[in-house]
Design a protein around this nucleic acid. Structure first.
Length: 499
RNA sequence: GGCCCCUUGGUCAAGCGGUUAAGACAUCGCCCUUUCACGGCGACUACGGGAGUUCGAAUCUCCCAGGGGUCACCA
């Protein structure tokens, strides 16, 4: 039975890199009918940030990376479910206590009373001497009596792992292969901190074992410390899990993806109007590739195709352009409801866009959604795409080409025809506008040769101010009968003033 | 600096000893179209360097270079 886990710290928003790690765990579990556990690693109380658990759960649930066990959401509230709990490390202190005692009794861990000041001085000296900073083993060989005395005196202490000297420790990583590191290169890692909390290195081993985790899929920053974890498994006589270390997601400059260069939190992308499905699809392909050439994957398809053996071993640059393209693909295929829901808040927030009153709002939004679906990559782009069309203070393109079109001799004829057609229109929809207004004008003015570019372009310029834009009938529909007339008159006024 | 990992076009990447070295994004061009967008077609660009092994190497080995990660009582 496959059991995997995602074990973040509650230190803020969920990074897209973390989401990818969670996703890979989730996909691997699902395709093997396994269990995806969510555990909270909150052993550093100083870094805890209010609201991060809610944020975490929200990100996971809206993207569909839903845990089967551990921390879950029920009626909008975080709860813990499962038989291997608690799933929050700060609630497991007594468990760690039991296992650390075993290590001490067996001489595999020891008390250390060195002050942080001494340690820091030691590191500085070592660094200055060009050495790798390491603990010098000062407290490694204290007698039980000495230890007891110091404890009785109330001296603060930590508990360190007693590493064997000059011993190779190896393990197999699914994406990297066999990795061997000698204990000479390792430190007597602190297992229990002065405050009694375990460090990550200790808690992760105890919890993964107790929770029967079979595969540890995590970021590559853990690769160098994995031998410590492997050694701990050996100390307890436990079978280590299979390790899968994922390469980092990088910025354009090939540094670790960071806040400096734009959004990195899942929430940021959701807020900008990226679809969760698209984000998941994009992240899945960032570091994993399918056997065939498929690009667009639903979550179900990912569950089918995902393969931990096809995870790539080099860092991947987070290409926002490609994310945009992919999200655009999802928007094109989305239902009108999804698009309306997505664009609505952005449009309502934009003061330049005149949104019709409530009774017409919904149908208007439907039309706008149809107009935008092929034109935006994510919903936050909706306003800028609409502004040039719907802003009351729009300016008519003053380029030579545009002005030439507007001053063609057929324009006055076209103007009057258009005005009367709009006035007498007894209905208003794209179909009617196309057939009974635009095409009708073309038919009725064959002899003046009002057709093609000289038909569409002046109307477009007069009504939108721009030579570019969506299908004319669609725009006029969205603009509305009244606004079209207003703009028509506004144009004729400006013409009179200009002359 | 020590240790570990990585290295195919600008980006994501396929490739597992013999290929014209896929595909996608981006870029550019053409087509479609009233315009823009969408879509279609096409072009452009890649095996970090050097030694081996081999009849043959992007694929195997070694060295070098570059990049990244890590060296906390943070995860």
């Amino acid at each position: 039975m496959i059991r995997v886990r995602f074990a973040p710290s509650p230190t803020g928003n969920v990074h897209v890199g973390s989401l990818r790690t969670a996703l890979y765990n989730y996909l691997f579990a699902k395709q093997n009918k396994g269990t995806f556990v969510l555990r909270l690693e909150d052993t550093d109380r100083t870094r805890y940030q209010e609201g991060s658990v809610e944020n975490l759960l929200h990100a996971l649930y809206t993207t569909g990376v839903v845990p089967d066990e551990g921390l879950q959401l029920e009626n909008g509230q975080p709860v813990e479910n499962g038989e291997y709990g608690p799933y929050i490390q700060s609630e497991r202190l007594s468990i760690y206590k039991k296992y650390i005692q075993q290590l001490i009794d067996e001489g595999k861990a020891y008390y250390c009373f060195c002050s942080k000041e001494r340690l820091s001085r030691l590191r500085d000296e070592q660094r200055a001497a060009g050495e790798t900073p390491r603990y010098d083993g000062h407290c490694r060989n204290l007698t039980p009596e000495e230890v007891q005395e110091k404890i009785n005196n109330g001296e603060p202490y930590v508990i360190r792992l007693k590493l064997p000297e000059n011993t190779d420790i190896s393990f197999d990583d699914v994406v990297r292969g066999k990795i061997t590191i000698n204990t000479k290169e390792m430190d007597d890692q602190v297992l229990i901190k002065e405050d009694g909390f375990p460090t990550y290195h200790f808690a992760v081993v105890i919890d993964d074992h107790l929770m029967k985790i079979t595969h540890v899929i995590r970021g590559e920053e853990w690769l160098p410390s994995t031998p410590k974890h492997v050694y701990l498994y050996q100390c307890f006589g436990w079978k280590p899990p299979v390790f899968v270390h994922l390469s980092n997601i990088l910025n354009d400059d090939h540094k670790k993806l960071s806040k400096r260069q734009g959004d990195v939190a899942v929430e940021d992308f959701l807020k900008k109007g990226y679809l969760p499905e698209a984000l998941i699809n994009f992240l899945a392909l960032l570091g994993w590739s399918p056997e065939n050439e498929q690009e667009i994957f639903s979550m179900d398809e990912l569950k089918q195709s995902f393969d931990i053996h096809r995870i790539s071993n080099s860092g991947a640059v987070f290409d926002r352009e490609k994310l945009n393209w992919m999200n655009g693909q999802y928007i094109k295929k989305a239902s009108n409801e999804v698009i309306v829901k997505g664009i609505k808040p952005f449009i309502e927030k934009d003061s330049l866009i005149h949104v019709p009153s409530d009774d017409q709002k919904e149908s208007w939004l439907q039309k706008v959604a149809e107009l935008l679906r092929d034109r935006i990559d994510f919903f936050a782009q909706a306003p800028e795409e609409l502004e040039q069309l719907l802003d009351d203070h729009y300016q008519i393109d003053d380029s030579e080409e545009a002005q030439d079109i507007l001053h063609a001799e057929t324009v006055p004829i076209l103007y009057h025809a258009l005005e009367s057609k709009i006035k007498e229109a007894d209905q208003w929809n794209a179909d009617y506008i196309q057939k009974d207004i635009i095409k009708a004008i073309q038919k009725e003015h064959k002899k003046e040769k009002i057709k093609g570019k000289m038909l569409y372009m002046p109307i477009r310029l007069i009504l939108t101010g721009s030579m570019h834009g969506p299908d004319l009938a669609l725009i006029m529909d969205v603009l509305g009968q009244e606004t079209c007339l207003e703009r028509l008159h506004h144009f004729s006024e400006s013409l009179k003033e200009g002359k």
